[in-house]
């Protein structure tokens, strides 16, 4: 995947120089290892700042909302699905975009590495199928497949579903992935056990809203957690308020979430936020045979009515 760098810069330079776009949104190296930052390039000579490696997890679709200019954007499989969702929801126009598609083989989970490394991490290097982490005089090596993000391990859309330029040949999609094993395990618990499970899951939440801020679906001008007239949800650290926030946020993502993993990656406390969004993703697939961000023409299930819609919960 490291070899994509030159191609990405070449395409970015070309579309900027030709005036096809006014800005290219990509990634640049962050100030800390394993955290790349979004990067906005306006001049062709600046494209050398663009990079691509295993730490480009941020979903750049988040930066497209309501923009007016013509934009070149780098998109992995999941990002491209969010771009489609954005177009369907009228947050950006297809004509404004030049999508630079990047076939992706998964991003590294910084929480996984940090939790197994005692010292301050200074350098993280990809070496074939190994990942070498150094810091504080220690070097540790992991197999790449052991430190990938959970959502990347079960990803079935590694290649962009929509693009204008592709930086490399599409990679093989993963087949026979058991996407919902963890969700099914929770579904089998008793109501009391479920309540306890989510108590534990969300106990460490500090309500920083990083999961919301990083999510390309969360673009409302005033989020329900920020409004105070009316106040939809309590703003305290009370466990009930915390759970209300997380559950409601997940519901807002129903039928739209592409499981890009941004929420989980952004969480400073390492909470597995996807446990909530994935349940709704599973329901949408099972009830409506719907996967978000695959097709520009098809309307999302929660915006349409079909006489055959399942209605077992209504009497």
């Amino acid at each position: 995947m490291l070899s994509y760098n030159e191609k990405i810069r070449h395409i970015a330079k070309k579309i900027l120089a030709e005036g096809k776009v006014e800005i290219v949104i990509g990634y640049r190296r962050g100030t800390l290892p394993m955290i790349n930052e979004p990067c906005f390039i306006k001049h062709p000579e600046d494209v050398t700042r663009l990079i691509w490696d295993r730490h480009c997890g941020i979903n750049l679709t988040n930066y497209l909302t309501q923009r007016k200019e013509r934009i070149g954007i780098i998109a992995k499989g999941c990002d491209s699905r969010n771009i489609i969702t954005h177009i369907i929801e009228n947050k950006i126009k297809r004509e404004q975009l030049v999508i630079i598609g990047v076939p992706c083989k998964g991003m590294i989970d910084r929480h996984k590495i940090a939790s197994q490394f005692e010292e301050e991490i200074q350098k993280v290097k990809e070496d074939g199928d190994k990942i070498v982490v150094t810091g504080g005089g220690i070097e540790k090596i992991w197999k790449l497949s052991d430190v990938l993000q959970e959502n990347c391990i079960i990803c079935t859309h590694r290649n962009p579903v929509i693009y204008d330029e592709l930086v490399a040949e599409p990679v093989a999609e993963q087949k026979d992935v058991n996407r919902y094993e963890d969700i099914r395990r929770i579904e089998r618990l008793s109501p009391a056990e479920k309540a306890e499970f989510f108590d534990d899951l969300l106990a460490s939440c500090i309500r920083c809203y990083a999961c919301r801020n990083v999510c390309p679906l969360c673009y409302c001008d005033t989020c329900f957690v920020d409004g105070s007239q009316p106040q939809w949800v309590g703003k305290s650290q009370d466990p009930t308020d915390i759970r209300t926030f997380h559950f409601l946020r997940a519901f807002h993502c129903a039928g739209r979430c592409t499981d890009c993993g941004s929420c989980e990656r952004a969480c400073p406390m390492g909470i597995k936020v996807r446990t909530l969004t994935k349940k709704l993703e599973k329901d949408c697939l099972e009830l409506f045979n719907w996967e978000a961000g695959i097709d520009l023409e098809q309307r999302p299930p929660l915006t349409t009515y079909n006489p055959n819609d399942p209605d077992d919960t209504f009497r």
Partner: peptide, 28 residues
Amino acid sequence: MEYMGIEPGRIHFSWISSAEATKFVDVV
């Protein structure tokens, strides 16, 4: 809702027309 630990039977959904008084009573 059940997934988050709310017991089945605690939340009910129903569609009742204003003309369906008996259904309303039954549901309540």
